[in-house]
């Protein structure tokens, strides 16, 4: 099933074209990596698809419709820096926001909503922290509650911006296990990933981007040395080369 169709998308950000002429045709049930150097327009691509930034040219269809019609089916898990962790809110209240799309203007979460929230927390093994203020969580736990919120939202598409930054190896693995389960139940997961390690292990497909689309497709086929060098414009550091060999 075609989930996201992007045709000739150009988005200007801060008066400079951030991404140009992007074409994508994304199917469901995959984990897709969005890869590129800093400033390549990875986040802009996501925001462009979600319709958060004005589109210069091009067209985005999600489930064959205008993205505004289907936003409720989409979860976006931003980078950690986007949040004020001192905000007076506990884990449960963050996750219950996942049910807000299903509530009326003045509506409150029902028993059913509460059960979905509890189940989502259990799934990410965070139930015992439900009353904890979010500042008091570790980096991995913070990432998990936003995953739980996405689960509670019962989304079909998950955008995750650098979910593995500042997370220890064990947590990274357990988060990835949950992502894999989502994929197996037919969901589509797009992950912005900035380093070149574990790409073949994690992603079914990759989008290599540096303002324009360098390559998109099956990781095995597309994630080649040539394409990586094109994406990083010869900026590939020794460290990145080394990571690639590992």
């Amino acid at each position: 099933m075609d989930v996201i169709k992007v045709k000739n998308l150009t988005v200007t950000y801060n008066r400079k074209p951030a991404i140009k002429g992007i074409n994508l045709n994304i199917q469901n049930g995959r984990i897709i990596g969005i890869i590129g150097p800093n400033g390549a327009g990875k986040s802009t691509l996501i925001k462009g698809i979600l319709g958060f930034l004005p589109v210069d040219t091009g067209e985005v269809k999600v489930f064959g419709e205008n993205v505004n019609q289907v936003l409720k089916k989409i979860s976006y898990i931003p980078q950690k820096e986007q949040f004020d962790w001192d905000f007076p809110i506990n884990v449960y209240d963050v996750v219950v926001m996942g049910r807000y799309p299903y509530l009326s203007l003045f509506g409150h979460p029902t028993q059913k909503d509460k059960k979905i929230v509890i189940d989502a927390l259990e799934k990410v093994e965070m139930l015992k922290y439900k009353d904890t203020q979010i500042r008091n969580l570790s980096g991995g736990q913070q990432q998990r509650i936003f995953l739980a919120r996405a689960l509670a939202q019962e989304s079909e598409i998950y955008f995750m911006d650098e979910p593995f930054v500042g997370v220890d190896a064990k947590t990274e693995k357990s988060i990835f296990e949950i992502i894999k389960e989502l994929k197996e139940s037919g969901k589509t997961i797009l992950i912005v990933h900035h380093d070149l390690s574990r790409i073949k292990e994690y992603f079914d497909e990759v989008i290599l981007i540096n303002q324009t689309l360098i390559a998109y497709g099956n990781t095995e086929k597309v994630f080649t040395k040539e394409n990586i060098e094109k994406t990083y414009g010869g900026q590939l550091t020794i460290l990145q080369k080394a990571n690639q060999l590992l």
């Binding site: 979600l50 958060f52 936003l71 409720k72 989409i74 979860s75 976006y76 931003p78 986007q82 949040f83 004020d84 905000f87 809110i89 963050v94 926001m97 807000y100 799309p101 919120r149």
Partner: peptide, 8 residues
């Protein structure tokens, strides 16, 4: 808390 979530 989360303007992006609000838009969604």
């Amino acid at each position: 808390f989360d303007p992006v979530m609000a838009k969604i």
